[in-house]
Design a protein around this nucleic acid. Sequence first.
RNA 1: UACCCCGUGGUGUAAUUGGCAACACAUCUGGUUUUGGUCCAGACGUUUCAGGUUCGAGUCCUGGCGGGGUAACCA
Length: 566
Amino acid sequence: MSEHETEEPRRLNFLEALVEEDLASGRDGGRVCTRFPPEPNGYLHIGHAKAICINFGMAEKYGGACNLRFDDTNPTKEDVEYVDSIQEDVRWLGWQWDGEPRYASDYFEQLYAWAEELIEKDLAYVCDLNQEETREHRGTATTPGTNSPYRDRTPEENLALFRRMRAGEFPEGSCSLKAKIDMASPNFNMRDPVLYRIMHAHHHRTGDAWCIYPMYDFTHGQSDAIEGITHSLCSLEFENHRPLYEWFLENLSVPSQPRQTEFARLNLTYTVMSKRKLRELVESGAVNGWDDPRVPTLSGMRRRGYTPAAVRNFIDTIGVARFNSTIDLVVLENAVRDDLNKTAARRMAVLDPVKVVITNYPEGESELIEAVNNPEDDSAGTRQIPFGREVWIEREDFREEASRKFRRLVPGREVRLRYAYCITCDEVIKNADGDITELRCTYDPETANGQTPDGRKVKGIIHWAPAEAVDLEVRLYDNLFKDPDPEDVPEGVDWRENLNPDSLQTITAKGEPALADAAPGDRVQFERKGYFCADSGDSKPGAPVFNRTVTLRDTWAKIEKRDAGA
RNA sequence: UACCCCGUGGUGUAAUUGGCAACACAUCUGGUUUUGGUCCAGACGUUUCAGGUUCGAGUCCUGGCGGGGUAACCA
């Protein structure tokens, strides 16, 4: 459209640069294949969204494929509930994995064969040390480990033992299969890591077929190799595992040579991201389930009203590097505001209503006011709102006394009711407790439709709801934690003490009649208040329930706060 | 403490083979506006430190300082 269409292509992040180098050198025959490998032991959160967008995005950008692979090697922690929710979340974000979902458990037979291959090469042995003894033999940061007394068993002996492990002849913990690498290595991962452990546990996919299960390290790289993954992108904490990842690829007859590259995971202020901590919040009842709109799970964010586009744009703007950083939550909020500003229909709702009686408006009469549905989108059209002698306005939009800066309703001053008339407050009615129960105002009939025939400027504009308003249950969400870094607590203090007691406030609001018919999942902007989403679980046409996704940017609140501080 | 990784404005991400440090968000100031929203314009400010190589260092080398990761039969 514009003449400066020659927009500079976005600079490459270090992963894109790496892939382009590989493409240029013909490393994988010009092929790019990535994977997203979640363990099905919990719900996906916004941190996973980063990994998802990086892996799927890289495949999309370079004409490759991205697999969805469940890393299901620990049957005691995993469940189909999670494999279902993970697929739903990935699809919700708008990504499509290549073919069917894969499972590491599909490769158990091959992995087992590779374990025997290692034994035959005298690179693995069955060790009878128990867990505690194994830890003791591993040594410490400053002292090398000591060899297991079982390290020199012959390949024949090991093979027989390993087959008996598989056959279920041994109890859990009695022995394990270990790689024979180097107990003196400065990298703990290379000090004879455990490859297989005995678990007499039922697996959600393989049932009771196995009683030995491979460890992550023995599974991940080989699974990548089986699937022809070219770029195995994972988070920074696997950096020290890379030498082991490569050791298996070198010593086993694998079909391809994937390469692992690490990037920094996402941290956000005012929230926690670890699965363990999220689980604690859910199980302790601090929040109402994995899809509570206050937790950063994708299902929670979806319920809160976040859009896939907002999440993807967010991930796009934060970039990716190898530096551990923390993104300010407002960046996420801006991303959803930016998307919803363009797409959400405007409606009027009064969250904390106070009655206004327009004394010079003819009793018993009413009219219809036309309102724009979305000033950012002409095609959204207009709607009609009833207007009469009584309306609701926001309690905070009235003050008995206020400075000039307060551009709202004050006795003797004039404001415009959005899309309707200008009113002037004449009288304040209070109850015995001194609470304001009613404001008596007069309107200027000449000020319909934004007009002021005498040309006077009325700067204040406030939203309102008609007497025919419907009651809306509205859930006002705030940050889950009071502190930007909730996990940073002094010794002995529980991080949950940082929980914000006011993270959820439920109120009844007055909304324009059209809001009664909201369908679950509908997103709207309540003018001047924020973006809201009809709750996907509890909202019903006729009995709407709205979750606040995010407030609008509030410049006035900022001014007041600053002036109060000064 | 041992090993590995990382240090660029308030925050996050860029900077071709070494060549005038850029973009976004935040903040501040103005403008537009029937949302104190949106949008537009401007301002603000930076290479962790000390040496070295070089005509020239954010980039290369050495050392210090600071931050993170790892020490599960979890992933």
